[in-house]
Simulated assay, not measured.
Amino acid sequence: MPRRLLFVHAHPDDETLTCGIAMAHHVALGDEVHVLTCTLGEEGEVIPPDLAELEGHEDDLLGPHRHAELTEALRRIGAHLRVLGAAEGRLSRFRDSGMAGSPAAARPEAFVNADLDEAAGLVVAVIRDVRPDVVVTYDPQGGYGHPDHIQTHRVTRAALAMLGAAELPAAAFEIVTPTSWAREDRAWLHDQDPAAYDRPAPAPSLVLPAEGDPFPPSVVDDGLVSHHVVDDRARTVKNDALRAHATQVIVASEDVHALSNLIAVRTTAREGFARVDPRTWARVPGASGTDLAG
């Protein structure tokens, strides 16, 4: 029987970067996949020179552009898009907060400043409309500590707490990566011929991550990762969707991508998740699986 999955993310491209394999995998299984983005990523750093004028534009032109990119990326995956608080005359209720301490974070409409009950209520409305069997979002640290990612986690949890018992999804997951995978991917990048992650001239080449750099908080002990979605065919779909996010992502090859920092990242066919209780967010003992079936 087809299931419904709802992935809750902070900005356009987050969904494909972290969950592209899982989404494509479940679409291929015949499941119904929905993505809820909480902002339009107005503070993103634009990579292509011919679109540079979008970055920091006083009319926030980057937001609608990234909305269009997200719409196309999800079309390629086969998923459905929701934007938090979208209504007639507005694409989004909240704005990208930027990094901690940035001027954007002080703006009243920044997502990080959202009233928790209001934002959670908007998520509740989406959950009641979609009626997902599974909800997926970030860990409490927001993956790598971005304020909007942390807020997305807080708002999603608050929304689940507002639901009646009969309305709760059967399962909830946070996005995590086994430490062994992170180490393997970093070693793989260092073993490749530089051509594997070079960009065509005259664009600057990508650079390797430093071997001693710490991993983000979402990289956890292998034993804390309950579900592993591995699907070689889904990687082609993920790469195709990443190419739709052209302002934010460089797809250097089928094996390597990068963001505006030009640090090479391995594009694998695997993603990790930890199953949690949708009410308490406590890890579910003994949970394991090869998809997010719940």
Rank of each mutant, 00 (worst) to 15 (best):
E167I: 12
E167K: 10
L168T: 04
L168H: 11
P169H: 09
F173E: 01
I175G: 09
I175N: 06
T177P: 01
T177M: 11
T177E: 07
T179P: 05
T179D: 07
T179E: 14
S180T: 13
S180K: 08
W181G: 00
A182K: 04
E184L: 15
D185K: 13
D185A: 13
R186I: 09
A187H: 10
L189Y: 00
D191K: 13
D191N: 14
D191A: 15
Q192K: 15
Q192R: 15
Q192Y: 14
A196C: 09
A196T: 06
A196S: 11
D198V: 03
R199H: 06
P200M: 01
P200C: 04
P202N: 07
P202Y: 11
P202T: 10
P202H: 07
L206W: 04
V207A: 14
V207P: 01
V207F: 06
P209Q: 06
A210G: 07
E211D: 07
G212H: 00
G212Q: 08
D213T: 15
D213W: 06
D213Y: 02
P217Y: 01
P217R: 07
S218C: 15
S218F: 15
S218M: 15
V219A: 07
V220W: 03
D221I: 03
G223P: 01
L224Q: 10
S226Q: 04
H227G: 09
H227K: 07
H227P: 04
H228K: 13
V229I: 00
V230M: 09
V230A: 12
V230E: 06
D231Y: 02
D231R: 02
D231P: 08
D232Y: 09
D232R: 13
D232K: 05
A234W: 02
A234N: 00
R235G: 03
K238G: 11
N239W: 07
N239S: 05
A241G: 04
R243P: 00
R243D: 05
R243T: 02
A244L: 02
A244T: 00
A244D: 04
H245I: 01
H245S: 00
H245Y: 05
T247D: 01
T247F: 04
Q248W: 08
V249Q: 00
V249I: 12
I250V: 03
V251G: 01
V251W: 08
